[in-house]
């Protein structure tokens, strides 16, 4: 997980046409495409949207291997449910398997629909997150009117995410160097759980202590409960509006075709 956290940011800080787009525009585009992907029930529409996303991926110069790896890593969670649809959905029976299992036509249809929706939304979100640094995502949300308190909590969380993954890694390495393995059947299960519990407790304690430290360091820089942030990103260029309008036009075209 930790490596994925770091490679995520590495990919997100590359330079390309997509990376250079304003993060607000990218966020709105992502939302529009995903909402449309979930809304439509036409497989052809989903295919066309997917082609558009793949085109954007090529523009963005993200390493394809990395991109596919991330999709493959995320897909199984929902893919599992989609693949089982033919067996659990009642309908016209296509084929009967032993053990009382049967494939239904409606199930196959629905399963394919779910899987394609899933592919569209995941490929879009992976494209978005690998072309936008996490900080810009939060800034985009803040500038689009997300509540101030929450966006401040979010931006601090994003900042400390990496620290915590490092910390977790340190704890894990220390445990590994003592031959601690959660799958070891020779030690008592309760003991393993207790060690994990202590690890998690350490993370909680660290959070509390860091929270205090951060508060004091913010206080010493003039923090008063309000958060006003300087955002370094440049103002919107015309190309951004153009890309947004293009995306909306493509979706309307796909829907009406």
């Amino acid at each position: 997980m930790k490596t994925s956290v770091n490679t995520l940011e590495r990919e997100a800080r590359k330079k390309s046409a997509i990376h250079n787009l304003d993060s607000r525009i990218k966020l709105i585009m992502t939302l529009i495409i995903i909402v449309y992907g979930v809304y439509t029930t036409n497989l052809l529409n989903l295919l066309l949207i997917e082609i558009y996303i793949i085109f954007l991926v090529f523009l963005s110069k993200i390493s394809l291997k990395y991109y596919l790896k991330r999709i493959v890593y995320i897909l199984p969670f929902g893919g599992f449910i989609a693949i089982f649809q033919p067996f659990i959905r009642p309908g016209d029976i296509l084929y009967t398997l032993p053990f009382g299992l049967s494939l239904s036509y409606q199930g196959v249809q629905f399963g394919i629909l779910l899987l394609s929706r899933l592919t569209v939304s995941i490929s879009m979100i992976v494209l978005f997150s690998s072309s936008t640094p996490m900080n810009s995502i939060i800034n985009a949300m803040r500038r689009l009117g997300f509540p101030k308190v929450l966006s401040m909590i979010l931006s601090l969380t994003v900042r400390y995410l990496f620290v915590f993954f490092d910390e977790l890694d340190n704890i894990r390495n220390a445990q590994k160097s003592r031959c601690f393995n959660i799958w070891n059947h020779k030690i008592s299960y309760m003991w393993i759980l207790r060690q994990l519990g202590y690890t998690i407790m350490m993370i909680f304690l660290n959070s509390f202590e860091k929270g205090e430290k951060i508060y004091f360091s913010m206080l010493s820089r003039g923090y008063n409960g309000e958060s006003n942030q300087y955002i370094e990103e440049p103002s919107m260029k015309h190309i951004n509006y153009f890309v947004l309008i293009l995306t909306i036009a493509i979706i309307i075209f796909i829907e009406l075709k």
Binding site: L156, T157, Y160, L161, S207, F208, G211, Y215
Partner: peptide
């Protein structure tokens, strides 16, 4: 407690 909540989020 606002910084605390955010750090807890990271945790």
């Amino acid at each position: 407690q606002i910084p605390l909540l955010s750090v807890l989020g990271a945790g």
